[in-house]
Design a protein around this nucleic acid. Sequence first.
DNA 1: CATATGACGTCAA
DNA 2: TTTGACGCCATAT
Length: 100
Amino acid sequence: MQPFTKQIIDIIQHIPEGQVMTYGQIARLAGNPRAARQVARALHSMSAKHDLPWHRVINAQGKVAIRDEEGYEIQRMSLESEGIPVINGRVSLSDYQVKS
DNA sequence: CATATGACGTCAA
DNA sequence: TTTGACGCCATAT
């Protein structure tokens, strides 16, 4: 497991309940400010097998970035279950995004 | 023009 | 078969 990937997983596992993080923030904390896309790649490949709260990871616009319909709804439900309302496929980042 | 952002797609072990 | 690496560059603003 590469340090990067490990960092990404670690960071996601530490996202507080009721809060979300963007790809850019995760990439920055992982040590590579330009690796936002790699964060997406990592999740695409490993989110399922790491008991990660991946539903707390969204894009910088507060939108659910999942393309898959099923996964999208799963994330929406998960977020709302934590008290994060998803309106029009979006989340109120100003209220729920983790600040760093 | 400069800056910010990204839930893929393919291949190796 | 399944799990993980890749760590850029196309697109939008």
